[in-house]
Structure formats: structure tokens, C-alpha cells
């Protein structure tokens, strides 16, 4: 039995009332605008791995684009560091590709037309968006993983993404922790965790004209 259906049975009281309260307006399922361009990320553990594989493809492609452009507004030292980030993300991407083997989704091309890549701030803000999103994505995905070894491997990568994010925050010269560590409340001191649906929604412009369907992934 998949975890999703287990959740539906054992957590029925909570789940049922949530559904009633949420009504029809909060359906997490992605509604395709054009059925021809929807790409399903799959289901189960392989779906989750393809989801993080997609995110690593996104990061690697982004940094490759910056490295190729060699923009003059980045210093030589900064470009060297960005190249290091590119290398780390390429390694993560290839790692998941190998882990998935024959189950891996294809290689994506990404749409960066919503980003401003002609200024230093634009490039670094884009990097911040991707890194912070990546950290929150790993935080939210781990509990959906059912295989111990896979969970440990994701943890090994998650903290490196957080280190990247911290580096980019420093390059931008901004508050290191604004928006990435809760300051008050029951989860004060904790970083954000986002569900696959939330992450894919936040990254949706980068996939256009495609829409990524994550409705097959486990929810708990």
C-alpha cells in the first residue's frame, strides 16, 4: 500500500474535515491550461526523486547560463564561486539521474524570461530564489521518502543547498536570515518547508510552456 492511501485511512478524521473546510477552491492539483503541455512527474518514490532531479536540473542550467555569459558585473572571484555552485548542482543533477536510472525523466530546457539577468542584483536575486526554494523543497520532501538510504542521501545534499543559499545572501549583502528562518511562533528558529505542489507553483514560470503535474506524488 502506498503511503498516500495509508494516510487516507489512518488519518481519516483529520483529512476528511480538512477537505470539507477546504472545499473545492483549494485543490492542490495543477489544472493544465493546455493538455498537450502537461508533464507528469510520476508517483511514489521515483516521482519524488524525479521532482528533486527536476529542481537540480533547473539550478544547474541556471548557473551554467551565468557561467557561459561571464557577465562583467561579477568579479573574477565571484564568477569562480558561481562556477563552483554550477559544479555542485551538475553533480547533484547527475547523481539523481544515476539513482533513477531508467526511471529518470528527460532533460529539460528552462524558461528564464521572467528573470533579469543583465544586472548583478538580478542574477543574484534569481540565484537566491532558486537556492532558498531548493532548501524549502528538500525540507518538505524528506518526510515523503520511504527508503532510509534515499532519505540520508537527500539530507547530504539539502545542507549543501542551504550553504549555497547563505553564500548568495552574503553576496547580496542582505539580512542573512530574513524570510528563511521563522522569528516567532511555534516554529521559531526553523526554516521553511514547502510541499512539492507549492515548490512547483513557485517555479512555474521556469517550466513554460510546460506545466509540471505533481498530483501523483505522496502527500504525507
Amino acid at each position: 500500500m502506498r503511503r498516500r492511501s495509508f494516510f487516507r485511512v489512518a488519518g481519516a478524521t483529520v483529512a476528511a474535515s480538512t477537505l470539507v473546510l477546504a472545499g473545492c477552491g483549494d485543490d492542490p492539483k495543477i489544472e493544465p491550461t493546455d493538455t498537450g503541455t502537461v508533464i507528469s512527474i510520476g508517483d511514489g518514490e521515483n516521482g519524488l526523486l524525479n521532482y528533486v532531479y527536476l529542481l537540480e536540473q533547473l539550478e544547474a542550467t541556471f548557473y551554467q547560463k551565468i557561467v557561459d555569459a561571464k557577465p562583467a558585473f561579477l568579479s573574477a572571484a565571484e564568477l569562480t564561486a558561481i562556477t563552483d555552485l554550477r559544479d555542485h548542482e551538475v553533480i547533484h543533477r547527475e547523481f539523481f539521474k544515476q539513482l533513477l536510472g531508467g526511471n529518470a525523466i528527460g532533460t529539460f530546457e528552462f524558461n528564464f524570461s521572467t528573470l533579469t539577468l543583465t544586472t548583478r542584483t538580478g542574477v543574484l536575486e534569481a540565484a537566491r530564489l532558486l537556492e532558498d526554494l531548493g532548501v524549502a523543497a528538500y525540507n518538505g520532501a524528506a518526510k515523503l521518502i520511504t527508503t532510509k538510504n534515499t532519505l540520508v542521501l537527500l539530507g547530504k545534499i539539502a545542507s549543501v543547498e542551504a550553504r549555497h543559499a547563505a553564500f548568495i545572501h552574503d553576496l547580496l549583502g542582505i539580512d542573512p536570515f530574513a524570510d528563511v528562518v521563522a522569528a516567532t511562533g511555534a516554529d521559531a528558529g526553523l526554516g521553511p518547508a514547502l510541499t512539492p505542489a507549492q515548490v512547483i507553483t513557485a517555479a512555474a514560470p521556469f517550466f513554460l510552456p510546460y506545466t509540471i503535474d505533481v498530483s501523483g506524488l505522496p502527500l504525507a
Binding site: N139, A162, R163, L190, A193
Partner: peptide
């Protein structure tokens, strides 16, 4: 999930200290 959310914050701390 809580442990991983703390784990990521610790990694940010480590990185900023290194910075």
C-alpha cells in the same frame, strides 16, 4: 521535518560563520 528544518538553519549558520 522539524529536524530537517533545524538542520538547514544550522547549515546556514555554518556557512555564514565560514563567510
Amino acid at each position: 521535518e522539524a529536524a530537517l528544518r533545524i538542520h538547514a538553519v544550522e547549515a546556514r549558520h555554518a556557512a555564514h560563520i565560514r563567510g
